Simulated scan of single mutants.
Amino acid sequence: MAGALPDGEPVPQDGSLPPDAAASAGKNGFAVYVHVPFCASRCGYCDFNTYTASELGGGASRETYADTVLSELRLAGNAIKPQKVDTVFVGGGTPTLLSADDLGRILDGVAQVWPLSDDAEITTEANPESVTPDYLRKLRRHGFTRISLGMQSSSPAVLKILDRQHTAGRAPQAAREAREAGFEHVNLDLIYGTPGETPDDFAASLRTVIDAGVDHVSAYALIVEDGTRMAARMRRGELPYPEDDVAADRYLAAEEALSAAGFGWYEVSNWATSAGARCRHNLLYWTGGDWWGLGPGAHSHVGGVRWWNVKHPAAYATRLADGVSPGHARELLTDEDRRVEDIMLRVRLAEGIPLAQVDDRGAKQALEDGLLVPEAYANGQLILTLRGRLLADAVIRDVV
């Protein structure tokens, strides 16, 4: 397939793929991602493809969104025929601004187009203030098994700087409500390194997620993206820029607290209480699976072909109303592209990557620098030490 498609080639109007790519769909697992682009308000650090009501304009609405996604699903079903769907992940935005019944209709639509695995993991993201006990119970009845709640911090001051709308206690309360509703797996997301956050603030956030009884925690360093409100505030001097040393200290604090509470890291930014609690959807991304991304701006990958949809919900809806693919452009990953991306992703996993797949000189230097586990190295596997996890990007750069 190498070289069959130039970068940025238009996507065919029917969404079809090259025959060899379509035939290989799901060979290494298959997932469905559904992007919901709606938010009640915009957080100051967010540069995702999301829209508040005032930003949305005409031509798209929450009320008709499920039907629009189902239209893309029908096109997708004509393009590929994977044997089964291993995971479905509804992200955003705030997916739970849609009704539970609409999310259920989308899930039913996936199952009608492609068979769901008997043990399929079905996840939705949610903002804590956007769900109620009754809403969570409805999601469970529709088949959702996992929920990921955006907590970010337990500090009211930090939440204010991040422009989060929920109160400090709402996220752990929502996590407990999700457990009571019958969700098998519950995740809380944290952001660390926010300007003004103290070590005590982050320690309190860690205690909060542990006490909430969740079985999965994600923790990410704050990244300030150009074009966001937070970036503008920093340029004006209203907020200080994040510091790498502070981020490293926070990560070490997370590892210490979470490991003491029975969580084990399985990806640099993710911890789970057991192998079964790990996010299978993300693992499929990280280990070379295929996925179809539904929704405006969603990215997909099948058989080495990667494509992405038009970004604005109105343009997305218009294309589907006209019966054509919402795909904006696509590219073919060369064998070298796929090799490099595989290393970039697998190095971050607790299982690591075979040494035979990486640059030998770079791996030896990383070992000498204390960034790799010596016992694993002796057995032919590259696995990061704790210090290596802090410097994962540097290790990746040296071993590609």
Rank of each mutant, 00 (worst) to 15 (best):
A4N: 06
P6L: 12
V11I: 12
S16D: 08
L17I: 13
P18C: 12
A22G: 09
A22P: 08
G26P: 04
K27Y: 08
K27A: 15
A31G: 15
Y33V: 06
Y33Q: 02
P37K: 08
F38T: 00
A40M: 02
A40Q: 09
S41F: 09
R42E: 02
S54R: 15
E55T: 03
G59N: 13
R62P: 04
Y65M: 12
T68Q: 06
L75E: 07
L75M: 13
L75D: 06
L75I: 14
A76H: 06
G77T: 13
N78M: 12
A79V: 11
D86K: 12
T87D: 07
T87A: 14
V88N: 02
V88P: 06
G91E: 00
G92A: 02
G93D: 04
L98V: 04
S99G: 11
D102E: 14
A111F: 03
Q112T: 07
P115N: 01
D119L: 10
D119S: 15
P128H: 13
V131N: 08
D134T: 14
G143R: 11
G143H: 05
F144W: 03
R146W: 10
I147T: 05
S148K: 08
S155H: 09
S155D: 04
P156A: 13
A157P: 00
L162C: 06
A168R: 15
A171E: 06
P172Y: 11
Q173V: 12
A175C: 07
F183R: 08
F183T: 07
I191A: 03
G193Y: 05
G193T: 13
P195A: 14
T198W: 14
A203E: 14
S205P: 08
R207L: 13
I210Q: 05
A212W: 04
A219Q: 05
L222D: 04
I223G: 02
I223F: 07
V224K: 01
V224N: 01
R229C: 00
R229I: 00
A231N: 01
L239F: 06
P242T: 13
D249H: 09
R250L: 05
A253H: 04
A253Y: 02
L258N: 10
A261L: 11
A261Y: 13
W265D: 06
V268S: 10
S269N: 09
S269V: 07
A272M: 11
S274L: 09
H281D: 08
Y285G: 02
Y285F: 15
T287M: 12
G288W: 12
G289M: 13
G289I: 14
G293E: 05
L294W: 07
G295H: 03
G297L: 02
G297P: 04
S300V: 10
V302F: 12
G303D: 02
G303V: 11
G303T: 08
R306D: 09
A314S: 15
L320I: 14
D322T: 03
G327A: 13
G327D: 06
A329G: 13
R330F: 06
L333D: 04
T334Y: 10
E336Q: 14
E336D: 15
R338A: 14
D342Y: 03
A350T: 04
G352Y: 00
I353G: 00
I353H: 00
D360L: 11
R361M: 12
G362H: 09
A363P: 01
A363M: 02
K364A: 08
K364Y: 02
L371N: 03
L372Q: 01
L372A: 01
Y377Q: 03
L382W: 00
L384R: 07
T385P: 05
R389E: 02
R389W: 00
A394N: 05
I396K: 05
